[in-house]
Design a protein around this nucleic acid. Sequence first.
DNA 1: ATTAGCAGTCACCCCTAGCGAGTGCTAATC
DNA 2: GATTAGCACTCGCTAGGGGTGACTGCTAAT
Lengths: 351, 351
Amino acid sequence: MTMAADLTDRQRRILARLVSEYIEQGEPVSSSWLAEHSGLGLSSATVRNILARLEEQGLVRQPHTSAGRTPTDAGYRLYVDWLLNARRRLKSADGLETRLRRSGTVTDLLENVSHELAMASQQIAFAMTPASQTVRLRHITFVSLDSRRVLVTVVATGNQVTHKVIDTPEEYEMAALEQAAQYINAEFAGLTLHEAREAIVARMHEERMIYDVLLTRALQLAQTGLDEVTPEETLHVQGASFLFEGALGSSVDREHVTLETLRALFKLLEEKHRLVELLTSYIEADGLTVVIGSEHTSPDMHPFSLVASSFNDGQRTGTVGVIGPTRMRYQRAITVVDGVSQAVARVLEGN
Amino acid sequence: MTMAADLTDRQRRILARLVSEYIEQGEPVSSSWLAEHSGLGLSSATVRNILARLEEQGLVRQPHTSAGRTPTDAGYRLYVDWLLNARRRLKSADGLETRLRRSGTVTDLLENVSHELAMASQQIAFAMTPASQTVRLRHITFVSLDSRRVLVTVVATGNQVTHKVIDTPEEYEMAALEQAAQYINAEFAGLTLHEAREAIVARMHEERMIYDVLLTRALQLAQTGLDEVTPEETLHVQGASFLFEGALGSSVDREHVTLETLRALFKLLEEKHRLVELLTSYIEADGLTVVIGSEHTSPDMHPFSLVASSFNDGQRTGTVGVIGPTRMRYQRAITVVDGVSQAVARVLEGN
DNA sequence: ATTAGCAGTCACCCCTAGCGAGTGCTAATC
DNA sequence: GATTAGCACTCGCTAGGGGTGACTGCTAAT
């Protein structure tokens, strides 16, 4: 395998035609088919020469000697990079946006987004808001549940609501809790969740000597309540059944999407923290990311590709995307993910 | 197929042996194997006669002429009914219970329960609390999100927390909202959610003439907030990857658990409301319910069996259970589901 | 009622042969 | 020098056939 970058224009067009045809049909593409449909007016023999060179570069492969060519992951990569340069806009963005605007909390929004994305792309889709340093505390409430338990509800910017039950060393009066909440809200609202926790801890040290029981309790409750904005709850996955389409499609599929690999993927999807790790490791910058087959770090993902886009409303960065077999309709996936991502960003800015 | 009820003791024992062996091995059971292992001291020929009669009754079936017998759904049914009469207790219930007690809200609890159940049974598991008429309002809070939106948080008995964003016709002051919440809490806490809504509507009619703006607004907010305790949020499913085990297990499985049927099931599981409908249609009384293969109303469920148990803590009725191929380890599933269900009930009573 | 024995069925495995799609290579052509 | 026609070759796929073994159902003897 030599350098893959230096391709003649003709080679590139043949490769692109091959990849798109293979994506549609799912069967190895022959030299004669390419000769007829490439629009280059070449004979199949010439195409064979070209294919032989593409194969040397590791861009295409033959399942067996007397078969046509299929793209390798590297071949998909070149094709996708080429697609990304000429990106299309999603048409139905308006309807989508108004539908998304109906969402209440961020959780609702992510739920809706993942659903829309799964339907539009006909693939498994996810939407994630990673625990962000820029989400700000808006309002906190305490409700006494029973003698030893207090419910803490935290509302953050972007209508993000989390609640959590805390075991306390002693019982609280309803009135005391309300007062405590008022105190916290007055003092710490507007800070990022992280800052707020820091500030509260600092305050606890400062005022340690004051022996104001109420104050101490309030700070303790608030600190514990802010301790954890679980990342698990901010990841939404939908459309798992679409994964079967790929496996069902080409009847006796020699694709590597088998029951075994499907199971591995499902297991990965179930352990949400693994998926979160995976996603956060990819997405550094804003914008579209495509990770193809063996480019994944996790072996379980090798039979699959991922198309994701991170959005940024200034306050919070999130990621939406789809997962499908490496033989995926990248054109459509990219268009849809990009469109949805931007719609989400606009919706969040609107708040 | 004649009446299935009147079986001699010998027939019953042969059937039970056949079913349990088939469940373990996944392969048709032959007359000679049964003759050796039934403990009845019969020859294979006699067993063949018995099997022929069981087949007449529709309890067993031959995949093809020269194969052993497999149970039909009716055969499983008899076997399961027989199991239910001699139920075992789950041993590890203590550890389970303390683990479950760590859950905060009911949502947490259901999440944990479905997880525990999936792991213990090695099958896909669910936990559900249907919208209940007996849940009582404990505490309500309003938080202003932006000019036209208010977050309503409802805490109900059993640490059930729901929140919802409401679009309002006009802006509210923070102070006004707090006052409104206090009013609602003072007046309506302790009623069931349904009663509370009724009472609030009644109050709105009564006091229509009073022109107390604050009061009216409070009532309106509360009413809208209580309107919907979404059933979707109260269903938790986990362990989907276990479904693959069955399909992978017997290599080239002639079981009806194919990719196609798996896909149908996944689709059903994704549309949670369909699953909720299904479950609520089965579970009327307390206690264990087993629904086997073709006994399901939905064709998508025909290749699968369901073992569920509803629990009742006096306030609320919920359901936990597992789903697996009709060739399921019913003994284990029943024990586990029963044990977990009772543990959940105890945990809920503890609150 | 039970059983031994026997004939019959049928999935499974393996082998073979033929087909056809598609290739690589070479020699002729523009 | 690039392109192409032609040809030999490879190899997956399918169909068919024979052998094997695991069962069964039936019948006649116990």
